[in-house]
C-alpha cells in the first residue's frame, strides 16, 4: 500500500514566458481530503490543471499511485482520477442523466451503449448527489447548486479513487456550500476516496480538510492537519492578514472569527 496518491516532483509550469510554479514538490496523501488554499493568482488552479493533464509541465513530473502520468494511456488515467474544473460549460439541452452517463466514457467502447454496470453506477451517482429526481431535466435548467451536484455526479460516475475539484463551492450560497462539502466528506469516509480540491473559504477548508496545503507565489509554504497549520503566523504569511483564531467546540479544527489586513 502506498500512502500517497499523487506525487509532484520538481514541477515547473509556465504560461508562455510567465513562470507560475517553479520546482515544486508535493505529496498528496491517499484516502484523505486535501485542500489547497492561497491568495488569488498563487498558482493553486495551475497546480490542479497540471495534475489533471490540462497543462503540460515545462519540467518535472506528476506521479499517480507511483507511476508517471504521461506514461499511462489517457483513458486508463481517467479510470483512476476524475477532474472537475471550475464552472464548466453545459451543452444546451443536455439532460442530467446524459451528462452523468458521459462519466462512463473511459469505460465504453466506441459503439457500445451503457451496460448494466454502467447504468447502476450512473443511477447510484445521481442518488448519492441527490439529483436523481432531476434526471430527465436539461442541465442548463437547474439551479447553481443542483448543477454543481450534477457535475459531481458525473465525476462520481467515472468510478475513480481520486477526485480533483477546482473550487466546487464557488457561486453557491452557504447552505449549498455545506451540502457539497458534506457530500464529499461522506464519499471520503465511506468509500475511502482521495479528494483534492482548491477552496477559497478558509473556515470550510479548516473544517472539512484532513490535509491542508498553503500555497503562495507558486510555492508550498505550509502543509499538514488544519489544527496544526492554521496559525496566526501562517495566515499572515499566506494572505497578509491578522487573524483571530479559536477552536470549534469539539476542539478539532480552528475557526477564524475575524481578521484585519496586516500593516
Amino acid at each position: 500500500m502506498k500512502t500517497h496518491s499523487i506525487e509532484v516532483n520538481n514541477l515547473k509550469i509556465a504560461y508562455e514566458d510567465t513562470v507560475i510554479i517553479d520546482s515544486m514538490n508535493l505529496k498528496i496523501p491517499k484516502g484523505q481530503i486535501t485542500m489547497i488554499i492561497g491568495a488569488n493568482g498563487c498558482g493553486k488552479s495551475t497546480l490542479l490543471k497540471s495534475i489533471a493533464r490540462i497543462l503540460t509541465p515545462k519540467k518535472g513530473e506528476v506521479l499517480i499511485n507511483g507511476a508517471a502520468i504521461k506514461s499511462q494511456a489517457p483513458k486508463e488515467v481517467a479510470k483512476i482520477m476524475a477532474v472537475l474544473p471550475q464552472s464548466p460549460a453545459v451543452p444546451s439541452g443536455l439532460l442530467v442523466k446524459e451528462l452523468v452517463a458521459y462519466g462512463r466514457f473511459p469505460y465504453q467502447s466506441p459503439m457500445g451503449g451503457l451496460k448494466k454496470h454502467d447504468i447502476e453506477i450512473v443511477d447510484w451517482a445521481m442518488e448519492a448527489t441527490g439529483i436523481y429526481e432531476f434526471r430527465e431535466r436539461p442541465v442548463d435548467a437547474l439551479s447553481g447548486g443542483q448543477r454543481q451536484r450534477a457535475w459531481i455526479a458525473m465525476a462520481l460516475a467515472q468510478e475513480t479513487e481520486i477526485l480533483i475539484l477546482d473550487e466546487p463551492t464557488t457561486y453557491l450560497d452557504m447552505s449549498h456550500q455545506l451540502e457539497i462539502l458534506q457530500l464529499l466528506q461522506k464519499l471520503n469516509k465511506e468509500q475511502k476516496r482521495t479528494i483534492v480540491m482548491v477552496l477559497h473559504e478558509l473556515n470550510n477548508a479548516a473544517k472539512f480538510a484532513t490535509h491542508l496545503v498553503g500555497m503562495k507565489k507558486g510555492k508550498v509554504i505550509f502543509e499538514g492537519r488544519p489544527i496544526d497549520v492554521i496559525t496566526k503566523e501562517n495566515l499572515r504569511a499566506l494572505y497578509g492578514i491578522e487573524a483571530q483564531l479559536q477552536l470549534d467546540p469539539t476542539a478539532t479544527y480552528p475557526i477564524c472569527i475575524d481578521f484585519s489586513l496586516h500593516k
Binding site: K49, A52, R53, I54, A73, P74, K75, E76, V77, A78, K79, M81, A82, V83, L84, P85, P88, A89, P91, Y102, G103, F105, P106, Q158, I164
Partner: peptide, 10 residues
C-alpha cells in the same frame, strides 16, 4: 464538455 473535462475523461 470543454477541453478540461474532456481531457479528464481521457
Amino acid at each position: 464538455l470543454g477541453d478540461e473535462l474532456a481531457t479528464g475523461l481521457g
